[in-house]
């Protein structure tokens, strides 16, 4: 039970980073921390004590297998997270060229 609570604390740390920091890079870091906590939470739910990895081999002992469904979902989620993160980085670097700062309080002009 305590791992779930620690996972939730990690999620809250990422939320704090997103809402209170003014730097775009810090916001992206907070977003990735939230992503990591959610991945870990999903994999923790599917874990079975004394289970074995979901790979079938010839000399397999008769033990329960860890749930493969959350692992497959998290596998796609990791790559999607990479795609969104690189997209955010591209937007950030473009904003830096125009406004010469990462500070979101100074990026106020609505003109393109």
């Amino acid at each position: 039970m305590i791992v779930f609570i620690l996972c939730f604390i990690l999620f809250l740390v990422g939320l704090f980073g997103i809402l209170t920091s003014r730097n775009i890079i810090k916001i992206i870091i907070g977003l990735s921390i939230m992503e990591f906590s959610v991945y870990l939470f999903l994999v923790l739910i599917g874990y079975i004590e004394n289970g074995q990895a979901p790979i079938i081999t010839k000399d397999m002992i008769n033990l329960p297998v860890v749930d493969p469904l959350p692992q497959a979902m998290v596998l796609t989620a990791i790559v999607i997270g990479l795609a969104t993160k690189s997209m955010l980085m591209a937007i950030a670097i473009r904003l830096y060229k125009k406004f010469k700062t990462f500070d979101i309080r100074k990026i106020t002009s609505l003109k393109g």
Binding site: Q52, A53, V66, V74, L75
Partner: peptide, 10 residues
């Protein structure tokens, strides 16, 4: 947590 696929990708 017995998820080697995820470890390699991550």
């Amino acid at each position: 947590l017995k998820a080697p696929d995820l470890a390699i990708v991550q």
